[in-house]
């Protein structure tokens, strides 16, 4: 494909993915899978690898995937086009919503809606935490019983961190760095 057309297609495909995936985490996954089948830009295996890479690098998976696919299809510029395209719908929609929110902040109905949203938002954060706890403290080996699946090193580290992070003011960024080093030193 010639240069400009591939950029336009990347832009279109990733803009659409950004627009259609509602909700966090792996919400982009079904759309990326569909894209793999339609465009042939990447295989399902590459998508699975990319999920693994996304889990071990910072950044949302949709963004990571856009950069990766864009680069493999059309180099660095392709990566930039795909990444900006997947983020663009969010920016446009939220810019509008945030204007509306600022204008109607004092409205009684908006206030009541927000009153309902806050505990729900915290509940979703808690349930994402539970899911992450399951992933990080238990090994995926369905044939074993519960106790043999427990990843004791991670459990001990978490138990050690909990009081420190609860009752002391520590910078989460520094804690992440320390835990990465602990992970390497103790071969987690």
């Amino acid at each position: 494909m010639s240069g400009l057309i591939i950029y336009l297609r990347l832009c279109y495909e990733f803009f659409l993915t950004g627009l259609l995936s509602i909700g966090g985490g792996l919400a982009t996954l079904p759309f990326l899978r569909d894209m793999a089948e339609r465009t042939g830009w990447f295989t399902i295996e590459q998508l699975v690898d990319m999920v693994a890479v996304s889990e071990s690098t910072p950044g949302p998976i949709g963004i990571n995937m856009a950069t990766y696919v864009g680069y493999n299809t059309a180099g660095v510029i392709g990566a930039a086009v795909a990444t900006l395209s997947i983020a663009a719908p969010s920016v446009i929609i939220i810019a509008i919503v945030s204007k509306l929110l600022a204008r109607f902040r004092e409205n009684a109905i908006v206030k009541n809606v927000m009153y309902g949203l806050r505990p729900a938002s915290l509940a979703l954060i808690a349930s994402a935490g539970l899911e992450m706890a399951r992933l990080s403290l238990l090994r995926t080996a369905p044939e074993l019983d519960f106790l043999s699946r427990v990843d004791w090193k991670s459990v001990i580290l978490a138990a050690f961190l909990l009081p420190i992070m609860r009752f002391r003011k520590v910078d989460p960024i520094i804690m992440i760095a320390i835990c990465a080093v602990i992970g390497i030193l103790f071969k987690f």
Partner: peptide, 17 residues
């Protein structure tokens, strides 16, 4: 892999707190 296993434990605790 090891570094990220450590980071994941930290992220879990961060979310809880």
């Amino acid at each position: 892999k090891s570094a990220f296993a450590g980071i994941r434990a930290c992220v879990v605790v961060m979310i809880i707190t």
